[in-house]
Every structure is written in C-alpha cells, then in structure tokens.
Amino acid sequence: MPFIREILNYRSLSIVGLEKNTGKTECLNYILERLPLEKMRVGVSSIGIDGERRDQVTQTAKPEIFLRDGIIFSTTEKHFRQRKLVAELLEIGDLHTSLGRIITAKVVSPGKVMLSGPPSTQELIKWIKNLNYQHNVQLSIIDGALSRLSPASPAVSEAMILATGAALSLTFSDLIAKTNHVVKLVNIESTKHDIPVELTSTQNGIWLYDTSSQKHTVLYDSAFTMNEREVSRKNDGDLVFVSGAITDRLMNKLSSDKYLNNCEIVVKDFTKIFLTPLLFNNFIKKGGKISVMNRSKLLAICVNPVSPTGYKLDSDAICNELYKLTGVAAYDIFKYN
C-alpha cells in the first residue's frame, strides 16, 4: 500500500493540488479508507470550501468525502446540517465564516459529508493545535482548496501530498514541467546556517545577515519600497533573509546587485517563493543559492489523468516521468480506488 505507512510518522498532513480537479478529494478518500483508525485518532478538515457534490467552477461531478466512525471532522454549520452520517457534536468554534461557524464533531456512524473548514492558514494552525489538545487527535489532515499551496507550508502541516493531473495541462510535457517546478521548490534544501530567532520571527523586511559575525542589518524595509536600499556594503553580510514572499521583481533586484549576487537567499518555506520557472531555473543555473528555513516533507505525488472536460492522459507515462525527474513516488490514485 503506497505511502500510508509513511503518513503515520507525522502529526499533520496537507493534500494540496496544483489546480482544481486534480484529485485531492480522491486522494483524501484513499488515505482515510486505509488509515488504521482503531489505533489512532484522526481529524480532517479543509481550508475554505471543498467537498461539494458538484464542482462550483466547472460543474463536473466530484467525489464526496467519506468518513468512517471515530474520525473527528470540522466543517461549517451549513455543511454540518447537510451531513449524511451520524456525528457527535463536540465543539462550536467562535470564528464566523461565510457558511456559519465551524463545527467539530466525531463520526458515530459512517457516511458522507462536505468539508469546509477554517479559511486562513492562521486559523488552520489553531485548528490543528485545538484538535490535538482538546480532542486527542494524533493526525490532522487538511484537504486543500482550489490551487492554494498555503496549507502545505511547514508552519501549518508537517507533511504534504501534491495532486496534479490533466486539469493543470493537457500537454504532457507542460504538465510534467509545471509539476516538476513545484516539486523542485518543495525540495529546496534547508539552510545550513543558524539564523537567530529575532530574525526568523520578523514579519517584514529583507535582511542582510553575516554568518561569521552573526549580525544582521536591514536591506529593504519592505519588498514594495525597495527602490532605495538602506545598506549596500559587501561586508555587511553573506546571506539575504526574506521574511515574506520572494517575487520576480525582488529576485531581479538581488541578482543584479554586484554586492548581493553571491549571497545565499533564505526564505521561510517554499510557499513563500513566487518565482516564474524561467527565472528560478536561470538563477540556479548561474550558481545562485536559495534555501528555506523549514523544508516540507513531500510524501507522494497523486496524478489524476482525466481533465474536467473529459480528456484522458496516459497515467503510467506521467507517473514514470515524474518519478524519473523528481525522485518522488507518483501514483494514479483512481487506479487504486
């Protein structure tokens, strides 16, 4: 059974897709069906709305989430009322979403439910903590929504599964290249340097850090106001720490600066990298070094070879090619289901 045993080593898992209809829900159902529930408590929710019977954008049929008894789940009031299972209500959260408050319940008798959970990553982090402390949940699983990668941030979940497929691109090579790019980002090595907490906990600014003297100075107060550089001395540091997102504009700025183009660039995690594949690849080819504070653990890639419009790609070829390129196991979950 692929990757189920590996999941048990982690306390939280997110399933994120590169596009809608890449099979996140199928993948979640696959996992939930196989987890040893008699040995552990599992919690499941989603970021934002998911689990609709019909896709809200493309109007294609979507699988519902099937929950076995013992599973703890969180969903909004609206979707809780529409549940097709017997569940013991455990808690009503204070947060109001567009679909009502978030209800946490335990499945008593199995059935189907729509999942629509906390809408932001901050709330998701709280949700995972609460499930762990209040309801003794050992593994929390987050079903991603749309093409949002944010729940896969190591700040939220320890491990991730990436869903890709024909919905992303119908051209074989394009699909492989786009998926490969994301996997490359996920697999960026974590930095070998010890960066002090006062720097890693800052919410804004781009900083220059000197690994030998362990001192840091601010380079730009914000990526929006980086026309004027505060400090421009080469000997001020050999590492650039970006507290927020790294974009093409910032990257161009950094790599064109003769004092900075040899510096190692450090970001918090891969979800903060918003670089186009071309720029990213050029940077790496030129010998640039980019690393993360926290590296994500990518357990597997799931492939949905069917596009929402009905086209079907050769799933074996995709899986083999992805494995060859990335070294991460790729599966067509639909075959296993």
Binding site: V86, A87, E88, L89, A105, V108, S109, P110
Partner: peptide, 22 residues
C-alpha cells in the same frame, strides 16, 4: 461530557437501525 448527538439510547428502534446501517 459536553458533546451531543441523537443518542442510540433515546430509542431502541433507532439503535437497531443504526447497527443495521453499519
């Protein structure tokens, strides 16, 4: 415990039906 659902013990027929569904 502060939790709630329509418990099986409210009605024996309900308990029987639920067992059957399972």
């Amino acid at each position: 415990v502060n939790s709630f659902y329509i418990y099986d013990s409210y009605d024996c027929e309900l308990a029987r039906l639920r067992a059957e569904i399972k």
